Amino acid sequence: MDKGGPNTTTGRQAGDDPIRVMLVDDSAVVRGLITRMIEAETDIDVVASVGNGQLAVSGLARADADVVVLDIEMPVMDGLTALPKLLEIDPDVKVIMASTLTLRNAEVSIRALQAGAADYVPKPTATRDLSGGNDFRRELIEKIRSLGGARRKARAGRPSRRATPRTLLPKLPPKPIVLRAASTMSVDVLAIGSSTGGPQALLSLLRGIGPNLRVPTFITQHMPATFTAVLADHIARTTGLACAEAKDGEIAMAGRTYLAPGNFHMVIERKGVNVVVRLDSGPPENYCRPSVDPMLRSLARAYGGRVLTAILTGMGSDGLVGGRAVAAAGGTVIAQDEATSVVWGMPGAVATDGICSAVLPLSQIAPFVTKMIGRAR
């Protein structure tokens, strides 16, 4: 199994301080394909390429990687075994689990996210799909950039094994957060949007709310189909909530939690006295299907100002357009704060747009939600 050294791709300047990536996969072919994808980007370097978890653990300190792309099924030491050892060596390193879309791998990936992995990326099942997979390439590069940036922020101010000119550049001042008043109307529905770091945050939030939630809850988490089924089962088992993947045409019921299934937008329609769930296979929004925005737009139409929306950790800005619709209808939008988010993309977008009524640490969101829902009931 090979181990690569520092990248020397031409066209990069010494002061650019690219994001440093370690690849861990038992297939040298897969590592080679991913390396070529990454080397096409001027701001990312592959600093190590190894064939099993044991080599990753022994090499992490030397590689000083920002992001580790970690396969699940490998000889000698698999990804789930290696994960806690990598985090013990460097608690700030961002680990992206890479797995094919099987039920077993989905279950293992959810366990890995609960154990501290930052995100996952589904690998195409065939090498030819991997080499020509523009969707896989885009998703992987986007997650490496986002998580690598988050890792740099986490290490800001701490002693580092390397110093580069980029660390000396002045930081732009953060955008100000201006809060709006929360709705005084009773809350009839809870909506949650999340992406990178979302499964961990969802489980924490829903455990804090508890099983006696008296309104329907709709969740859109960016995940493929096999993963959302496993996540819904984990939510039900660990929180006591009645949670399942949403089904097209079912009537929304108080106390039930509906998770958007992978590859479908979840939207809500009012039919007389009932609210009906619809699954939409229309074009992706924000490169995602399911996407948070269509869910929130439909909830604003169906419930008006009686919507409470929480935007949790995730990269990108999905939820911003839908959050604006909720706010315009008189509903309440809250966001997870930057300090407790794996990536402050989605919550940061709504927090700095002036539509939020609160920006809170993850541990404080459940009490806020419980108080809002119970206030007028």
Rank of each mutant, 00 (worst) to 15 (best):
M1S: 14
M22K: 02
V24P: 06
D26K: 09
S27V: 13
L33F: 15
L33S: 06
L33E: 13
Q54P: 01
A56V: 05
R62D: 11
A63M: 00
A65W: 02
D71P: 03
E73W: 06
M77F: 08
T81N: 13
P84N: 12
L86F: 05
K94E: 11
V95H: 02
L103C: 00
R104E: 05
V108W: 03
R111Y: 01
G116M: 03
A118R: 03
P122R: 05
R128M: 12
E142C: 15
K143M: 11
R145S: 10
G148M: 12
G149A: 08
A150L: 00
R151A: 14
R152C: 01
R152A: 14
K153V: 04
R155Q: 10
P159R: 08
L169R: 13
K171V: 14
P176S: 07
I177L: 10
I177T: 13
R180S: 09
T184Q: 14
S186Q: 14
S194V: 11
G197P: 14
Q200E: 12
G208R: 06
F218I: 04
I219G: 02
H222C: 12
T226S: 02
T228N: 03
A229F: 08
A232T: 08
D233R: 15
C243F: 06
C243Q: 07
G249A: 08
E250T: 06
A252V: 01
T257Y: 00
L259G: 01
M266A: 04
I268D: 01
V276S: 07
R278T: 15
L279Y: 12
S281P: 05
P283F: 05
Y287V: 11
Y303F: 15
V307D: 05
G314F: 13
G322F: 02
A327Q: 13
I334W: 06
Q336N: 11
E338L: 02
T340R: 09
G345Y: 09
A349G: 03
V350K: 05
D353N: 10
G354H: 05
I355R: 06
S357R: 04
A358I: 08
